[in-house]
């Protein structure tokens, strides 16, 4: 079926490619652009490892077609630190609080946590846990992730 040309701004850089409409955004990011920071955990919209920001909103990129993102601005975990390498406060907090073990879930956890704190700058622990509802971690038991989000919120992430 007809391929389409899409143009997307990813981590500040404009990208233009011809894609099949059925190409998932996560495959576009990982395979077409080589941005392998967003992971594929379940590919069924349940684990959140593929979370990126689309026009400022956290979304699961395994459950969206790349053509739907035409014209959009996308931020992935690769674009979160500033150009001089200084980590985003949420990344910093995950580092300080040991909020990861294998690190597979971490890019998605950080992207959704960033959204959570943007929308609710002073979340309670319950609100943090609710906010992480769409993201699975098989290692940490979540406690250190909750600690990290709380610490980042305190630091004004």
């Amino acid at each position: 079926m007809t391929k389409q040309i899409i143009s997307v701004t990813i981590n500040g850089a404009r990208q233009t490619h011809e894609v099949e409409p059925r190409l998932l955004l996560i495959h576009y990011l990982r395979e077409t652009l080589g941005l392998t920071g967003a992971h594929i955990g379940c590919e069924t919209s349940l684990c959140g490892a593929c979370t990126v920001e689309l026009n400022g909103k956290a979304i699961k990129s395994c459950s969206m077609f790349a053509v739907q993102a035409n014209g959009a601005e996308i931020l992935t975990i690769e674009g979160l630190a500033s150009a001089d390498g200084k980590l985003h406060p949420m990344q910093e907090a995950f580092w300080n609080e040991h909020a990861l073990q294998c690190g597979f879930c971490t890019p998605g956890m950080i992207m959704v946590s960033k959204q959570l704190v943007e929308r609710n700058p002073h979340p309670t622990d319950v609100e943090i846990r609710e906010g992480l509802d769409g993201n699975l971690c098989r290692c940490t038991g979540y406690q250190h992730i909750v600690n990290a989000v709380r610490a980042a919120a305190k630091a004004g992430a």
């Binding site: 909103k57 979304i59 699961k60 459950s63 906010g131 769409g134």
Partner: peptide
């Protein structure tokens, strides 16, 4: 409903 990401879409 769902989670933050689902509610965004």
């Amino acid at each position: 409903i769902g989670d933050i990401q689902v509610r965004n879409m």
